Simulated scan of single mutants.
Amino acid sequence: MAVEGAGPARPRHRADAWAARLLTFSAGAVNALGFLALGGVFTSVVTANSALTGVALGGAETTLGVRAALAVLCYVLGAGTAAAPTGAVGPAAPRAAGDGGVGDRTRGTAAGGRGPTPGTAPPARMTSSGPGGGAMAETGTTAVLALLPEAEPLLELAAGVDARAVRPGVPAHAALLYPWLAADRVDEPALRRLRVALPQGRIEAELTAVEHEGGFVGVPVPGLSAAATAVRAAFPEKVPYGGRFGTDPPVHVTVALGAAPEAAAGIARRTAARLPLTARISALHVVALGPTGWRALAELPLVRRPA
């Protein structure tokens, strides 16, 4: 799922809508033809067939009732036969923690309350075994990030080349500080300390370059560097990514991660063709990893303080 309150998820492909319309039309047509061919028995409206069976038990329309009862029995047998091989009978299995939440576009999450690391991926000077290569975040972890809706077309472009390299529903973002505090320690004093460190006024960040290494494609966001440095300086005890990339690593938005090398090269070329872009950031966001994924904790507007 997308971060709650963090903006809309990317729209589904138009083909999905047409497929739904065709399936709806075909289901209605089959039901209408079946009703006529079976002498008043429905092929899919099980409630109506149950009612006809009850009428038959009352002594009226016995023949129709028998047909309706057979239709209900066939429906139950068909549903059970179809569900058994897939293991769909019974409660649905819970999703892995962090699945679909804000974070790195890794291909899965580990069990035991772990989820993908937000905004981490290996730029050219970072090794592919860094956080973006599979490091997982503990439940209760928080991050300070900026949403970049202007970069959404880049993620849609990447998904069109290799859907596995982009997490569906995850908004384009850049992490300024990860990890931050434990979620239960994000209180008003902590948020006030964070607000004091924020720059004054909206940030305009130019996205002009592409970083590509292996299956990773990213776009640096140098316009957020000053804000990231200020946030990190306000919490020196919280070193980004545990210090694996230094105390003040560059800020970027991940376009694709874990793509096949050939697909990543194509994504990088197409991304470069879409640049430059200008991102306008008027607020930062604090998100936390919960049992069902990343959720928004606070929005911090970048307002100008009165002189």
Rank of each mutant, 00 (worst) to 15 (best):
L145A: 02
A29S: 13
L181E: 05
A279F: 00
L147I: 00
L275T: 06
R232A: 09
P94Q: 05
A263K: 14
V170Y: 03
R185S: 15
A32K: 09
S129M: 15
A197F: 06
A83M: 02
R195C: 07
L73H: 08
E138Q: 06
G214F: 09
A272H: 08
T247F: 09
A259W: 14
L64Y: 04
A124F: 05
G214Y: 08
G7C: 00
P199W: 07
A29E: 14
A174P: 00
V45A: 13
W18E: 10
T127D: 14
V251Q: 03
A259I: 12
L277H: 08
D104Q: 15
R10E: 15
L36W: 15
V287Q: 04
A227V: 04
G5L: 01
V45D: 14
R107W: 12
A260S: 10
E188N: 03
P118R: 05
S26H: 12
A111M: 09
E237N: 10
P118K: 04
A279T: 00
A69Y: 04
V46Y: 02
T254D: 00
A29K: 06
G65P: 12
A19F: 02
A111R: 14
P236S: 09
T127E: 14
R105K: 01
R107Y: 03
D248V: 02
A27K: 11
G78T: 08
A183R: 00
R67H: 07
S26W: 12
P250R: 07
D162T: 05
D248R: 05
R202S: 13
G28T: 12
A183Q: 00
A264L: 03
G243A: 13
T86F: 04
P122H: 14
M136C: 08
L33P: 02
